Amino acid sequence: SLEELLKLARHALRHGEEIHVLDRVITDEHEIKRLIEELERLI
């Protein structure tokens, strides 16, 4: 769900981890922040 993805993204950002989204691995902090902003808009 989007909520789950948002939780994962926030966790990854906090802990400096990578996040796997739709067969992509996002490691860049700015990309993760952008993902979080997009998800928050959708929810």
Rank of each mutant, 00 (worst) to 15 (best):
H11F: 05
I26P: 02
V21Q: 04
I36N: 00
L42G: 03
L13A: 05
H20Q: 12
I43C: 03
R34Q: 14
H15D: 05
I36Q: 00
R34G: 09
A9Q: 01
H11S: 07
R24W: 09
D23R: 02
L13D: 02
H30L: 12
R14C: 05
L35R: 03
K33F: 10
I36S: 01
R24H: 08
L22G: 15
E31Q: 10
R10I: 14
E17R: 11
L22S: 11
L6N: 00
L42Y: 07
V21T: 07
R10K: 13
I26C: 03
E3C: 09
L8S: 06
K7L: 11
L42T: 06
E37N: 11
I32D: 00
H15T: 13
L5I: 08
I32A: 02
L22K: 14
L42Q: 09
E37I: 14
V25H: 08
E18I: 11
I32P: 00
H30I: 12
E18A: 15
L22E: 11
E31A: 10
R24S: 06
H30K: 13
E3G: 06
R10A: 04
R10F: 09
L42H: 05
L8V: 06
V21M: 12
H30R: 13
H11G: 05
G16A: 06
V25G: 03
D28K: 10
L22Y: 11
E40Y: 07
L39K: 00
H15R: 09
H20Y: 09
K33H: 08
R41A: 10
L6Y: 02
D28L: 11
A9K: 01
I43Y: 06
L2V: 07
R24F: 08
E3D: 08
L13F: 05
G16C: 05
I26R: 02
I32G: 01
E40G: 03
E40A: 05
L42S: 06
R10S: 04
L39N: 00
A9C: 05
A12S: 03
R24P: 01
V25N: 05
I36G: 00
E17Y: 14
E18T: 15
H11Y: 07
T27C: 04
L8E: 07
L22F: 14
E37W: 14
K7R: 13
E3S: 07
L2I: 09
L22R: 11
I32E: 00
S1L: 11
L13S: 04
I19Y: 05
E29L: 13
T27S: 14
I26E: 01
R24K: 11
K33W: 11
R41S: 07
E38Y: 15
L42N: 04
E38V: 14
R24V: 08
K7S: 09
L13Q: 05
D23N: 09
L2W: 12
I26D: 01
H15L: 08
L5Y: 05
D23E: 07
R41D: 06
L5H: 02
H15V: 09
L13Y: 06
I19K: 01
V21H: 08
L22H: 13
L42P: 00
R34S: 12
I43F: 06
L2P: 05
E18G: 14
E18Q: 12
D23V: 03
R34T: 12
A9T: 03
H11C: 08
L8H: 07
L6M: 04
K7M: 11
L35G: 00
L6K: 01
R10C: 04
H15K: 09
I32N: 00
I19M: 12
E31N: 06
K7P: 00
I19C: 02
E38F: 14
E40H: 05
I19A: 04
T27V: 12
G16Y: 04
